[in-house]
Nucleic acid binder design. Structure first.
Length: 529
RNA sequence: GCGCCCGUAGCUCAACUGGAAAGAGUGCAGGGUUGCGGACCCUGAGGCUGUGGGUUCAAAUCCCACCGGGCGCACCA
């Protein structure tokens, strides 16, 4: 457990025991680094205890100082805040921990190996993946990495909608292409999929004399989707097919379980989802006798639960937000509430100042493959991760393919390359960080770096808990800024061997942290650029 | 008409989930003379957080109304 968390819990326990009050204590990063390394607003505690913030401060100060002597250099009171400054001992023991654990530094057991099913992308198997899928892929994969790092057991899952309407449309489109190729005159279906890829598949079907064209096409498309995903560095553990869910009678099963919450109206079977928080009741079985998409999807989610997952997380596109209510209601009726939907907002493509208009109907859209070809995996993941889930994002292709300062991904990679270079330079001179002495790092410039390294655990923890992968790249950019600045100010490998060793320790810790951060984001950490 | 998301520096975005004087990057203006990589560093200008009310000791953050952008509102998936 991190030192920060230990202090927080100590204060929590103290308040519970002595004030008989349950209050979560959360340290913040102070507005101004001069105040300290951690801050705690005392206003709420002050109200709870009906005493002045200053008095509260004195009380907490005593507790913390008793328990964490040596780790805390200073506690001060300012405008209602408690500010805490870490000691160099604390900072340097953190540094040592990084050097010792390297890529394993920051791993936590908060997840207690709980089983998480993270479903994302889940595009229809009717065409190539697009840029919105690239966003979902980048964010989903990174979130999975973060959760794993926090001690959860995570399976990345992709749902394949290989039955239902869109597959029928695919079939119509495909048949039209086949007929075209055979020289017959046909009108291409208006709502069909006009992309070139279907022509290619149609050709293969004719050449190989495939018996079941749609099935073949779905498999083909799914395979190419998988390839695209691998190109962007995402590997799914499970691909679950809708047809399997139907075939395994999961639909009947979920229907049975929901039976007492249903009624019939105009020959259709309704689920009383309003009883579970939805704004209207939903059809499960259409009057024609077929299950709705919702019912099958519910069956699929029941299947996830039956596979032993304790936490379900879905990442959906913005066009599905109206669907959250009924899904939650359905799962609640099944007795499962640990279900969360993250909406990955839309991506607008730009080329410099020009907006790239996309139209599915006209078949004009940027595929993920095209984007990868133009901008590269690393830049895409960086840009996709920089924004929080809820905010729509402008993706500037021109910017992403630039290899200069404007492109933040290089700023991070450059830091890594620089760290490695310094370490190797030192090694050639026979200098290592092995027996460094912390007292040579007790300067303000060094302290800035040490504190950033100390914050890394907080970021890992927070980005996992709040499911906010965007916190990570923002942190790394700040770390890189501090590192580059330090590098500029202080020579790392110099004449004094003891000073060199100590600074090298700092350098190497930076290397491991940036490397780990980039890895979590699925971005390469090159040693040379 | 109803619901959801967004609106923060010229541009792209943060802001620890209600906390201190709203921060980065880019762009713009200027600067950095042996040495570990100049894809770097330093300085500066740039803001009524869309508008108007409210709640609070404290609001970019919560509530109400309005303006603007996006998306939903199916016995489609």
């Amino acid at each position: 457990m991190s030192l920060r968390k230990r202090i927080e819990e100590t204060v929590e326990n103290y308040i519970r025991k002595n004030w008989k009050v349950d209050k979560k204590i959360v340290f913040e990063k102070p507005k101004n680094p001069d105040y300290g390394d951690y801050a705690l607003p005392l206003f709420i505690l002050s109200r709870l205890k009906k005493e002045s913030p200053e008095k509260i401060f004195q009380e907490i100060k005593k507790v913390v100082e008793e328990e964490f002597k040596g780790y805390v250099e200073e506690l001060n009171f300012l405008k209602g805040f408690l500010n805490l400054r870490l000691s160099y001992d604390a900072l340097i023991s953190n540094l040592k921990e990084i050097l010792k654990k390297k890529e394993n530094f920051g791993k936590a057991d908060t997840g207690k190996n709980k089983r998480v099913n993270l479903e994302f992308v889940s595009a229809n198997p009717t065409g190539p993946l697009n840029i919105a899928n690239a966003r979902a892929a980048s964010m989903g994969d990174t979130l999975a990495n973060l959760l794993e790092n926090a001690g959860f057991y995570v399976e990345r899952e992709y749902y394949v909608n290989d039955s239902g309407n869109q597959v029928k449309v695919l079939e119509k489109s495909l048949n039209a292409r086949i007929k075209e190729l055979k020289g017959e005159k046909v009108e291409f279906p208006e709502d069909g999929y006009p992309g070139e890829y279907l022509v290619e598949i149609a050709k293969e079907i004719i050449e190989k004399d495939i018996k079941n064209p749609v099935e073949y096409a779905v498999d083909k498309i799914l395979e190419s989707q998988k390839e695209s995903l691998l190109k962007i560095g995402v590997k799914f553990k499970n691909f679950v097919r809708e047809s399997e869910i139907r075939k395994n009678r999961k639909v009947e099963k979920v229907l049975e379980k929901l039976k007492k919450h249903t009624y019939e109206k105009e020959k259709a079977l309704y689920f009383k989802s309003t009883e579970f928080g939805d704004d209207k009741d939903r059809v499960l079985i259409k009057s024609a006798g077929e299950p709705t998409y919702f019912l099958v999807d519910l069956a699929y989610h029941l299947d996830k639960i039956e596979r032993g997952f304790e936490i379900l997380i879905d990442i959906w596109g913005p066009d599905h937000h109206g669907y959250i209510g009924r899904m939650k209601a359905g799962l609640k009726a099944l007795g499962f509430e640990n279900f969360e939907v993250l909406i990955a907002q839309q991506v607008n493509l730009k080329k410099g100042k020009e907006t790239v208009k996309m139209s599915k109907r006209k078949g004009i859209y940027y595929t993920m493959d095209e984007l990868i070809e133009e901008a590269g995996k690393d830049a895409i993941r960086m840009f996709m991760l920089l924004k929080s889930f809820e905010s729509p994002l402008e993706f500037d292709i021109e910017l992403a393919r630039k290899t200069g300062v404007e492109n933040p991904v290089y700023y991070l990679q450059y830091m890594h390359a620089r760290c490695v270079n310094v370490r190797k330079f030192a090694e050639e001179k026979g200098i290592t960080a092995d027996s460094f002495e912390g007292r040579y790092l007790e300067g303000e410039d060094e302290r800035k770096v040490l504190v950033m390294l100390f914050y890394f655990k907080d970021i890992l923890e927070k980005s996992a808990i709040f499911k906010s992968p965007h916190l990570l790249p923002h942190f790394l950019l700040e770390l890189a800024g501090v590192y580059h600045s330090y590098y500029q100010k202080k020579r790392i490998v110099g004449d004094d061997i003891k000073v060199s060793r100590a600074r090298l320790a700092l350098n190497n810790a930076c290397e491991y942290i940036i490397k780990k951060g980039l890895k979590l984001m699925g971005i390469n950490a090159p040693e040379r650029m």
